[in-house]
Design a protein around this nucleic acid. Structure first.
Length: 263
DNA sequence: ATGGCCAATATGATTGGA
């Protein structure tokens, strides 16, 4: 079973790339972020035509998450618990039945948080605390769980080509990295790091200043796995070639393979 | 990490992104 995450930076602008990538990769589940459209405007038919069930949680203009799945959804829940006043569309959870068992998947678009001396950063930190609470609760279920998405967190210096440029940035501040470690320390496994210690594993390259051409990237898109998912872990791959396609997103897909029968 | 970008909005300028 192949489960992917991809921040597409507008699902409408990325429709051709997304369908081409799905045809090439044929993943079973895809978590999308920054769909940037309301649910009624989501181009569901394009994905349904490729054999996917589609769950969306969007808003006007920005943010927005979705999950595509070849197997049917048993449950779909939008919004991260812990703040009923939070209107930003950044979280969607689905329970998916496969012949090999049930998998729980969350599509996560964690706030950027810049600039750090504003309420944007306090919102990020509170959101991370809510995500930690969510993960603690879900892990008690002892299910295969994948928390996949754009975390807007550079976990370590080896996750940036030029770490000194990120000192003081909301993606790399000690408090940000500390919260991410607290999350992982609940017993989750970072899929890409389970597969490799290489320092050249980036998932984002800025559109500006020739960042892609210089390979000035960062690793901020992550798949965290519960122990029951990690037991079935086979591989993790960053599809970096997609960044060289015409009209690319600034993020590329990350694909995790789990050994689950019948998929 | 800014000289250089990209997407959405009732747009011809501003906001958000990372």
């Amino acid at each position: 079973m192949h489960i992917a995450t991809w921040n597409v930076n507008s699902v409408k602008q990325r429709l051709d790339s997304a369908t081409a990538w799905l045809a090439e990769r044929n993943p079973d589940v895809v978590c999308l972020q920054e769909t940037k459209c309301v649910d009624d405007a989501f181009p569901r038919e394009a994905f349904e035509g490729l054999g996917y069930n589609v769950a969306t949680h969007g808003q006007k203009g920005f943010n927005g998450v979705a999950i595509l799945s070849k197997a049917p959804f048993d449950e779909v829940t939008a919004r991260l618990p812990g703040d009923n006043g939070d209107e930003q569309a950044r979280f969607l959870e689905a329970v998916i039945s496969t012949p090999g068992g049930v998998v729980r998947v969350a599509s996560i678009y964690l706030p950027n948080g810049n600039p750090p001396d504003t309420e944007k950063y306090s919102y990020k930190i509170k959101w991370m605390d809510r995500l930690i609470d969510y993960a603690r609760e879900r892990m008690a279920l002892e299910e295969p769980l994948l928390m996949a998405g754009d975390y807007n967190v550079i976990p370590a210096a080896s996750d940036a080509r030029n770490p000194s440029a990120w000192v003081g940035d909301a993606l790399f501040l000690p408090q940000t990295r500390g919260r991410f470690r607290s999350l992982v320390n609940l017993g989750l496994t970072d899929a890409v790091r389970a597969a490799s210690d290489n320092s050249d594993l980036y998932t984002f390259w800025d559109y500006q200043a020739g960042a892609w051409q210089k390979n000035n990237g960062i690793r901020i898109d992550h798949v965290l796995m519960s122990p029951q998912a990690t037991d079935r872990f086979v591989s993790a791959t960053i599809d970096r070639h997609v960044r060289a396609w015409e009209k690319p997103s600034d993020h590329v897909p990350v694909v995790v393979e789990l050994a689950i029968e019948g998929t």
